[in-house]
């Protein structure tokens, strides 16, 4: 294990007495930064992010190589538009990775967040210094949020770069057949990333809760991934349509609403509310579980 896995002592909080507000924030920031360094510094996380970033490159190259009139009546999502405009590589990649890759990445980070420390035996040390357990959870979840946003933007950015390089850019044709400038297209892509990040953060909240249940980070990661996959599977069974609105992943595909003209923002609201509901319930559940748990390792 590398050096960053060593127990990290947020030294500012060790000092007794009442720290000033500024100092409190500084110590908070330092703790958060050290957590980010842990998440983004790990070799396995970097490898995972590289794999995520490879998908848009593969898509772009594959479409470039097989370019030509493809007689496909049904397009799984934005693929046929790629050869006309590289912009769509980003969307095709996001759409392709949303089903499994992005959820796995978020599940790995959030599942590892508490269980990983417990497994390594570092959780005990973290808690011997007066780091509040609530504070520890907040920092852990903060890192999950940053990671979710980073991987989403990473996939979009790599897709965009690969697409523009291989196919060039230009005005973006929306689903409604209208065209907008590339700049507005980029703005909409940013909106898509933000919306997907919110959905992934809800999954991250579930993962954080599962992570407080166990000391096996792999178990937590697999359980969280299974949950997201199960949610996708249930969502595709038409006989269960009464259940669909309650599924974690049901509204994720609503990101395409941002690619219609005009954009109906109220179509995004159920997805955001659903993510908020999942977030609140599972974050408080993680807090309840972690606060009352005996930490022996």
């Amino acid at each position: 294990m590398s050096a960053v896995d060593a127990p990290r002592l947020p030294e500012a909080s060790v000092r007794s007495g009442r720290p000033g507000r500024a100092r409190f924030f500084r110590s908070e920031l330092r703790f958060f930064r050290s957590e980010l360094k842990l998440v983004f510094g790990r070799r396995r996380n970097q490898a995972g992010m590289a794999a995520l970033a490879a998908v848009p490159v593969i898509i772009a190259i594959a479409v470039r190589v097989t370019e030509g009139p493809t007689e496909t009546g049904q397009d799984p999502g934005f693929f046929s538009a790629i050869s006309g405009n590289g912009f769509f590589v980003a969307l095709a990649a996001l759409g392709a990775e949303l089903g499994l890759f992005l959820p796995i990445a978020v599940a790995a980070i959030s599942g590892d967040s508490v269980a990983g420390e417990a497994n390594l035996g570092t959780l005990r040390y973290l808690l011997t210094v007066p780091v509040g357990r609530t504070r520890l959870l907040a920092v852990k979840y903060g890192a999950v949020v940053v990671f979710s946003a980073t991987v989403t933007l990473l996939v979009a950015a790599v897709g965009l770069a690969a697409g523009l390089l291989l196919f060039g850019g230009g005005p973006v044709t929306l689903l409604s057949g209208a065209q907008v400038s590339l700049a507005e297209g980029l703005l909409r892509l940013l909106g898509v990333c933000a919306y997907l990040t919110v959905g992934l953060c809800a999954l991250g909240a579930v993962g954080l809760f599962v992570s407080t249940l166990t000391e096996q980070p792999m178990g937590a990661t697999i359980a969280t991934t299974m949950l997201s996959v199960t949610s996708f599977v249930l969502d595709s069974i038409p006989q269960l349509d009464w259940l669909h609105p309650y599924l974690l992943t049901h509204y994720w595909s609503a990101f395409v609403e941002l690619l219609r003209d005009p954009v109906a923002l109220d179509a995004l609201r159920p997805g955001l509310l659903s993510a908020l509901a999942y977030g609140v319930v599972f974050l408080t559940a993680a807090w309840a579980r972690f606060g009352g748990r005996d930490v022996s390792n």
């Binding site: 009546g73 049904q74 397009d75 799984p76 999502g77 934005f78 046929s80 538009a81 759409g95 689903l175 409604s176 057949g177 595909s253 395409v256 219609r260």
Partner: peptide, 28 residues
């Protein structure tokens, strides 16, 4: 506009012109 998960079909009438746009087939 009939909204699909990853597509859209529009039937637009504007004066004498009627357009049927299918985003997934990229056909108008």
């Amino acid at each position: 506009a009939l909204l699909g998960t990853l597509g859209e079909t529009d039937v637009i009438r504007n004066g004498k012109d009627v357009w049927i746009w299918d985003s997934q087939a990229n056909k108008a």
